[in-house]
Simulated scan of single mutants.
Amino acid sequence: MAVVSGARSLTYAELNARANRLAHRLIGLGVRPESRVAVLLERSTAVVVASLAVLKAGGVYVPLDPNQPAGRSEFILRDTGAVALLTDRAPAEIGFAVHAPIVRADEDFADEPAGGAATMSGC
């Protein structure tokens, strides 16, 4: 096992495939090297998938604490110029203004290739 969180676990192959699919989605949204991607997730296997996907897409991972005040998260999102927000929450549950595409990190992204992300050779 590569990642275990509660009853959920991922093998290395599953982690890599999910991260590649999410990285392809991020690249499709315009994430390029050094683009900032905000991540608003509770502790779970999705956090590891999301952070790896951001790196595979060439982006910079900007963690947002789900327990901090909404105004603080909104400020960080705006201040960093994040080009996307990865979350496990519905848009109505986020609690602050988001002026970037919202990507549900808990989606399957089955329509995206599981092979290496475009900016990462050999992944």
Score class of each variant (00 low, 15 high):
residue 112 E to D: 03
residue 85 L to E: 10
residue 91 P to W: 12
residue 86 L to H: 07
residue 66 P to A: 06
residue 45 T to S: 14
residue 45 T to C: 14
residue 76 I to P: 06
residue 110 A to T: 09
residue 74 E to S: 10
residue 91 P to F: 12
residue 97 A to F: 09
residue 85 L to Y: 10
residue 51 S to K: 05
residue 93 E to R: 02
residue 60 V to I: 14
residue 58 G to V: 03
residue 109 F to E: 10
residue 55 L to T: 11
residue 52 L to A: 11
residue 81 G to R: 06
residue 56 K to Y: 09
residue 64 L to R: 00
residue 46 A to D: 15
residue 75 F to M: 13
residue 81 G to M: 10
residue 71 G to T: 04
residue 64 L to F: 03
residue 101 P to Q: 06
residue 96 F to V: 01
residue 102 I to G: 01
residue 48 V to Y: 13
residue 46 A to T: 09
residue 76 I to S: 09
residue 74 E to F: 11
residue 100 A to S: 09
residue 74 E to Q: 15
residue 94 I to M: 08
residue 70 A to P: 05
residue 108 D to G: 00
residue 82 A to L: 07
residue 93 E to L: 02
residue 99 H to D: 15
residue 67 N to W: 14
residue 61 Y to F: 15
residue 51 S to F: 15
residue 82 A to M: 05
residue 61 Y to P: 02
residue 63 P to C: 04
residue 58 G to Q: 07
residue 93 E to W: 09
residue 61 Y to L: 10
residue 104 R to P: 03
residue 65 D to W: 04
residue 57 A to I: 01
residue 62 V to F: 07
residue 71 G to L: 08
residue 93 E to Y: 07
residue 84 A to V: 03
residue 49 V to K: 05
residue 61 Y to M: 04
residue 105 A to W: 11
residue 64 L to H: 02
residue 47 V to T: 14
residue 53 A to Y: 11
residue 49 V to F: 12
residue 50 A to T: 09
residue 47 V to R: 13
residue 76 I to E: 10
residue 48 V to D: 14
residue 80 T to I: 05
residue 94 I to N: 10
residue 65 D to C: 09
residue 47 V to L: 15
residue 105 A to Q: 02
residue 93 E to V: 00
residue 105 A to I: 00
residue 85 L to A: 05
residue 68 Q to A: 15
residue 64 L to P: 02
residue 96 F to H: 12
residue 93 E to C: 01
residue 87 T to I: 08
residue 78 R to Q: 15
residue 75 F to A: 13
residue 80 T to E: 09
residue 51 S to A: 13
residue 96 F to E: 06
residue 59 G to I: 02
residue 107 E to D: 15
residue 63 P to M: 07
residue 78 R to P: 08
residue 103 V to C: 07
residue 78 R to H: 15
residue 108 D to Y: 10
residue 64 L to V: 00
residue 69 P to Y: 08
residue 108 D to K: 02
residue 56 K to G: 07
residue 109 F to S: 09
residue 105 A to D: 03
residue 96 F to M: 04
residue 108 D to E: 14
residue 101 P to N: 06
residue 46 A to F: 14
residue 47 V to Y: 14
residue 61 Y to K: 00
residue 97 A to H: 12
residue 50 A to C: 12
residue 84 A to I: 02
residue 89 R to I: 04
residue 50 A to H: 12
residue 95 G to R: 00
residue 91 P to M: 09
residue 60 V to H: 03
residue 69 P to H: 12
residue 104 R to W: 13
residue 102 I to Y: 12
residue 78 R to A: 15
residue 62 V to R: 00
residue 111 D to Q: 10
residue 105 A to E: 02
residue 107 E to K: 00
residue 79 D to S: 06
residue 108 D to S: 14
residue 58 G to A: 06
residue 78 R to C: 08
residue 112 E to Y: 04
